[in-house]
């Protein structure tokens, strides 16, 4: 008897839960319809390829050919392979470009704020490098920095700054410096956009009261400007850090990942495995390493983003 009752109540409970699920759906039907394309995108273009890629790492997977199951062989051979560590080290050095981008963007944003005329022309010129395809600017710098006929080294030797040109293409550290410089030059305007937007949102009154209290420029910057930019800075840094590490076109055009593997940052290594050798399984294994390296910054981003949106609504 007792069980019967509880069964019955469970049934009605179940029904009412079903009904309430249906009700929520009915209420939000328009919203779900609106996000449907986005959801389809997330599942079809992000999650399914991502999981399929993980599965691919367990195979020897030639592009367009038939895969052979090899278990964890790809991981083992990658970890034993010396150039992998060269590539890993190169990736760490290369990530310094994010710090340089931040520095340039911060100085530029603060400087533009100081002036009242020509701001439009100046920001327009700043953004030129970011608007043009990175491979285009990579090609342009390949010419400008060409050791034999490029204007940069020709002029430096002519002016006596250098006694002879530098063949940076055959020198690992010099190649690293070149790709880091070109990447910084190309992508700092993105950070500049985010930082300028956040600077514009700082209340003028805060500066006025800082002045009343006799704060000097450095103190004002430290106590008013910087705290207000903190979220924007962390958001910009975490986006750029990850995006910088996924760029391959300029490195490929300037150094092709060489000499040897000295400038083959993980993304370029992935590209070399996929395109050069058609080894898709190994390529994705390299990609997973990059994924693990960058995942921590996603959480930094989300935390700061959350904070920024709370402040905006408060």
């Amino acid at each position: 008897m007792a069980t019967e009752v509880s069964d019955a109540s469970a049934e009605t409970e179940g029904q009412s839960r079903m009904a309430s699920v249906w009700e929520t759906f009915e209420e939000n039907r328009f919203s779900y319809l609106l996000i449907m394309p986005t959801l389809v995108f997330l599942v079809l273009l992000m999650w399914i390829p991502f999981l399929r890629g993980v599965w691919m790492t367990l195979y020897e997977w030639p592009f367009g050919g038939s895969p052979t199951w090899i278990g964890l062989e790809n991981y083992a051979s990658l970890l034993e392979w010396k150039p992998f560590y060269t590539a890993f080290k190169a990736t760490l050095w290369f990530s310094l470009t994010t710090a340089f981008q931040l520095l340039v963007a911060l100085v530029a944003a603060l400087s533009v704020r100081e002036i009242s005329r020509f701001t439009k022309a100046i920001t327009g010129i700043f953004l030129l490098a970011y608007t043009v395809p990175p491979l285009v600017t990579g090609t342009i710098w390949a010419y400008l920095l060409a050791p034999d006929l490029g204007p940069f080294f020709t002029l430096l030797t002519e002016w006596g700054v250098l006694s002879e040109t530098i063949y940076w293409g055959t020198n690992g550290s010099a190649s690293m410096a070149v790709i880091t410089f070109v990447t910084t030059w190309t992508f700092w305007p993105f950070m500049f956009l985010i930082l300028s937007a956040s600077l514009q949102n700082i209340d003028e009154e805060l500066y006025e009261s800082a002045q009343i209290y006799g704060a000097n420029r450095l103190q004002t910057f430290w106590n008013v400007t910087l705290p207000h930019m903190k979220s924007a800075i962390l958001v910009a840094v975490s986006i750029r850090l990850i995006w910088n590490l996924t760029k391959v076109s300029q490195v490929l055009q300037l150094t092709n990942g060489g000499p040897g593997y000295d400038t083959s940052v993980l993304a370029v290594l992935l590209y070399r495995f996929a395109y050069g050798r058609g080894q898709m399984g190994v390529a994705y294994t390299v990609g997973l390493v990059l994924f693990v390296v960058t995942i921590g910054f996603v959480f930094v981003f989300i935390r700061e983003f959350e904070k920024a949106s709370e402040e905006a609504t408060a």
Binding site: W61, T246, A267, A274, M280, A283, G287, T294, F297, V298
Partner: peptide, 16 residues
């Protein structure tokens, strides 16, 4: 999370 994804990795399964 999708925005912060190092999307270069998706190139491999997408090619396939």
């Amino acid at each position: 999370v999708a925005m912060m994804f190092p999307y270069i990795l998706l190139v491999i399964p997408v090619m396939d």
